[in-house]
Design a protein around this nucleic acid. Structure first.
Length: 679
RNA sequence: GCUCACGUAGCUCAGCCGGUAGAGCACUUCCUUGGUAAGGAAGAGGUCACGGGUUCGAGUCCCGUCGUGAGCUCCA
């Protein structure tokens, strides 16, 4: 043996602190941890070798950067949860040996596992599975990894058709690994905890159906969701958060505050705005409108329906027919068709062929706006033309997709269409993003992100010239850059007609919702043969930008309700002040004060009900009214009010009435989100 | 759309193994005239989502309809 060969028996590992050690080739990650210290060895859950997560048992066979993953590591939680999914599957198999296993990954909030079973899991059964999981944890079986050939794997999973299906998708030469813990074997990439005993704090949450591979044409599996943490405290905190979230849920808060209702007699997914909700919507629209005017938009109004032919031209019909309300057919045509004995499927065909005329509830506002644009001749000097409308549109969402205000069948977009020249696109996109920034900023909403949808370089489905696309995509990226919020460029996510920018916010339950969007469109101007006269006195094709920065008033206000937890700033509060006379003696003065405030332009109510002050204060707090003006004998005498601010408890401020109204008006005007009135 | 769960007074919920509905809050009336998150008393209010079925008898069991909720690949 030469010296060189001997050296090769050692590998150099670099630790995160930069120190380098030499260890025998084949030392496991656990061995490395042990060599550093017994405390670390005990805490070690997995390792990272050259950045890749591996099991503790993984031997190190070459020089590498090695890190020991403990529960303090960001990657440790998904590891724990993935193992928790296996533990759960182990328990389910113990109770239901016939269950076929699907997939069981860690997700952001925990983990799930899909099973193919002959009867769904009941809620009681979840408890039993949880108990059984306790036994699996107690047995403290090691998770053991093994790499197998495809043939071996086929044999191992011969009773698990779903796994066999996945198996067929491995490409030649791809590593196939399996993990065993006690009696349970799974096809799995890993890595895992060293043993099942490392899982301590977990909870199964709920069950749900889930299509195999998310494909609704495949069979439905039964999914069990759970979550796991490294400490009881974190688990408790998480469950508490879920509970808190439920309390902020706009579907609970909105109806309780009298903002909106959904009535099954009217229809699913159709929002009825009650007076208090209507105030919020009005205020918001007014606010947005002010900025639209400043940015050179012209507001228009268009009807809720349009001819089928219009949507044939735009391409909405029949292409999107599935997500639209069925067309309205003129009654004389209806009669004729009935006389001819036309069947439903024939009717559908003939409508698609354009032989039957009718109207459609508009699924989008653009065709109407395009017709407005096209009703005048345009010179390049007119451009950009920016047509804005709070336009109500109707879409046939699947019933299972509906929910609260965030997914509905009729909604009002803060829509606008910009018709501009190719050169103007970048500036216009910037303008759109500027608007979003101002408005979300005013509302104190910082927790949103931006997706920039770019074209898939390998696809040919896109319309428009590649150079146009390059410029438009660059404009979108630049605008997103300038916005200063997190954004992701997503190739392949562009619409076929142009790149787009989407705004995404999270609701209290952690679900992400797309709010608004800015989309560049090269195809509709083409389809509608739009043109403007250029400086060369020749016709040119304008570019269109669709933009609805808040998506819809329904969804946006739903998100707002959760953002504020129902505690709206003064300017959005349906009732801004309630005047509370202490006794009947001050009732007259209270009504006078209310008139003063109302004339000043504030929304005010008097609560002179025959109830104690305590009772009425409690009511006002629960109604989330920002200010309570208490009038007793002393205040009436002095021309003052004892002002109690929502959420501030017993702290009160004695203010001269005109001072009070002046301060509120200032807050209202500036759309302050702070309620505190200052000294 | 599909899977599961749920649907009882305006709201939140109780109602066991089938024996013809209950509480708290809200509401109405009366007493009370109050000082910063529920003063007291009385009263009214329900074809138990809707439609069928089983049964001597259904809020309760079965089927269907409507509605609501959770979820429907953050790849083994």
């Amino acid at each position: 043996m030469t010296q060189q060969a001997e050296k090769k028996a050692e590998v150099r590992i670099t630790l995160p602190d930069g120190s380098v050690r030499e260890v025998p080739r084949g030392t496991t990650v656990r061995g490395v941890a042990e060599s550093i210290g017994p405390g670390l060895a005990r805490a070690a859950l997995a390792g990272r070798v050259d950045g890749e997560m591996v099991d503790l048992k993984t031997p190190i066979t070459a020089d590498a950067r090695v890190e020991i993953v403990t529960d303090r590591d960001d990657d440790a939680l998904p590891l724990l949860r993935h193992s928790a999914a296996h533990v759960m599957a182990t328990a389910v198999r113990a109770l239901r040996p016939e269950a076929h296993i699907g997939f069981g990954p860690a997700i952001d909030t925990g983990f799930y596992y899909d099973f193919e079973v002959d009867r769904p899991f009941s809620t009681d059964e979840l408890e039993r599975i949880e108990e059984e999981m306790g036994r699996v944890v107690e047995s403290d079986d090691p998770f053991e990894r093994r790499e197998v050939t495809r043939e071996e794997a086929r044999e191992l999973f011969r009773d698990d058709p779903l796994k066999l299906e996945r198996l067929e998708e491995f490409t030649e030469g791809e590593t196939i690994s399996v993990y065993r813990n006690g009696p349970f074997l799974d096809l799995c990439r890993g890595p895992h905890l060293p043993t099942t005993g490392r899982l301590k704090h977990f909870r199964l949450l709920h069950t749900a159906g889930a299509y195999w591979r998310g494909d609704e044409s495949r069979q439905m599996l039964q999914r069990i969701y759970g979550t796991a943490f490294f400490s009881e405290k974190e688990l408790a905190k998480h469950l508490e958060r879920l509970e808190e979230a439920r309390k902020r849920d706009h579907r609970v808060v909105g109806p309780r505050l009298g903002l909106f209702t959904i009535d099954e007699k009217v229809g699913q997914g159709l929002i009825l705005w009650k007076p208090k909700g209507a105030v919020i919507r009005q205020e918001l629209q007014e606010f947005i409108s002010g900025h639209l005017t400043r940015q050179g938009y012209s507001q228009v109004f268009t009807p809720h329906i349009g001819k089928l032919d219009l949507y044939r031209t735009s391409g909405h019909y029949p292409y999107y027919a599935d997500s639209q309300f069925p067309p309205l057919i003129e009654s004389d045509q209806m009669e004729r068709l009935a006389d001819e004995g036309t069947s439903c499927s024939e009717l559908a065909n003939r409508m698609q062929e354009g032989e039957v005329q009718g109207y459609m509830l508009k699924p989008m506002n653009c065709p109407h706006h395009i017709r407005i644009f096209d009703s005048d001749a345009h010179s390049y000097r007119d451009l950009p033309v920016r047509l804005a409308e709070f336009g109500t549109v109707y879409r046939w969402e699947q019933s299972g997709e509906l929910g609260g205000m965030t997914r509905v069948r009729g909604f009002t977009q803060d829509d606008a269409h910009i018709f501009c020249t190719e050169e103007q696109v970048a500036d216009e996109i910037n303008g759109c993003l500027e608007l979003v920034k101002i408005i979300l900023g005013t509302l104190g909403m910082e927790d949103y992100r931006v997706r920039v949808g770019l074209r898939d370089p390998d696809s040919t489905k896109y319309v428009g010239e590649p150079e146009q696309w390059d410029r438009a995509e660059a404009a979108c990226r630049d605008a997103a850059d300038r916005l200063g919020v997190p954004y992701s460029a997503e190739p392949g996510e562009a619409a076929f007609y142009g790149p787009k920018i989407d705004f995404v916010v999270r609701d209290v339950i952690g679900r992400e919702w797309q709010l608004g969007t800015v989309q560049v469109d090269y195809t509709l101007p083409e389809r509608f043969d739009l043109s403007y006269t250029g400086a060369d006195n020749k016709p040119h094709r304008p570019v269109m930008i669709h933009r609805a920065p808040f998506g819809s008033m329904e969804r946006f206000i739903g998100v707002l309700i959760e953002h504020f937890g129902g505690e709206f700033p003064l300017w959005l509060s349906p009732v801004q002040i309630v005047v509370l006379p202490i006794s009947d003696e001050q009732a007259e003065a209270a009504r006078e004060m209310a008139v003063e405030l109302k004339e000043a332009g504030l929304r005010v109510e008097v609560d002179d009900r025959n109830e104690t002050l305590n009772y009425r204060i409690r009511d006002a707090e629960k109604a989330r009214i920002p200010y309570m003006a208490v009038l007793g004998g002393r205040e009436v005498e002095a021309g003052t009010a004892a002002v109690r601010t929502r959420g501030a408890g017993r702290k009160q401020q004695i203010l001269a009435r005109d001072d009070f109204s002046a301060r509120l008006l200032e807050k209202d005007r500036t759309r302050s989100v702070e309620l505190a009135l200052g000294e």
